[in-house]
Amino acid sequence: MGRLGLRLATGSVLAFLYIPLVIIFLFAFNADRGQSWPIRSYTVRWFGDALANGDVRDALLLSVEAALGATAISLLLGSLAALAVHRFRFFGRETISFALVLPLALPGIVTGMALNATINTAGIGFGLVTIIVGHATFCIVVVYNNILARLRRTSSSIEEASLDLGATTWQTFRYVTLPVLRTAILAGALLAFALSFDEVIVTTFTAGTDETLPIWILNHLRQPNQRPIVNVVAVAVIVLSAVPVYLSQRLSASDAGGLSG
């Protein structure tokens, strides 16, 4: 009885989460230009139309560039911060840890406002660079947390063991530290990419007149004749965000058993 109840509850939650997404998916294949239910016939012609649309292509390119840039910055700063916080006891260590995690919890609109004011004051032009910086503020946390969790799960004596066995500091990093962290780094990078790719709020404050894919959707949502293409773009955003998250989960799961040794 309890088991059945649990299944029903799980099922309802999943349905609540995913039915709207499924509907978007179905509408993307709707041959009718209007959003009427039930769907009478299916087509893939909106995918062709979306690809042919220059604005959509530009937005896709910008989104990918921004996500790659934000991921690169997060990897560099997030992993260095994690190593430093894990390995050294220094003044302000807890504060740094807190300061890194905070942007994830801060409302995007506040981060966005603050960045917008700063960029205006500094007189930097809005565009790809400002989008990347804006996204990096919350992407760093994901990389940082992933690597820190792995470091805490790993015996700290393995690096000492490596030095003890004759490896130099550099060899130890190359043969022991990096391989042990590799999957955590990759998982963090994939999550950072996904976070950046579908971000809207901070982007509206940092993109200026440029459009990332999610911003393009927002701007065209209310134009009935663009509706089929908006659906197709939404499907693209869903897929491009879901795949990295899925891969990242797989990576973390496959290591859970093998790395505590």
């Binding site: 790993t154 015996s155 004596s157 393995i158 000492e160 063991a161 490596s162 030095l163 003890d164 066995l165 004759g166 490896a167 130099t168 022991v176 391989p179 042990v180 093998g258 790395l259 505590s260 040794g261």
Partner: peptide, 20 residues
């Protein structure tokens, strides 16, 4: 002198085997 320049080796309490 650094650990890697000493003619000693250590067996660690938690073994410290390389998991990968």
């Amino acid at each position: 002198v650094a650990p890697y320049d000493r003619d000693v080796n250590t067996v660690f309490q938690d073994y410290a085997l390389f998991p990968h």
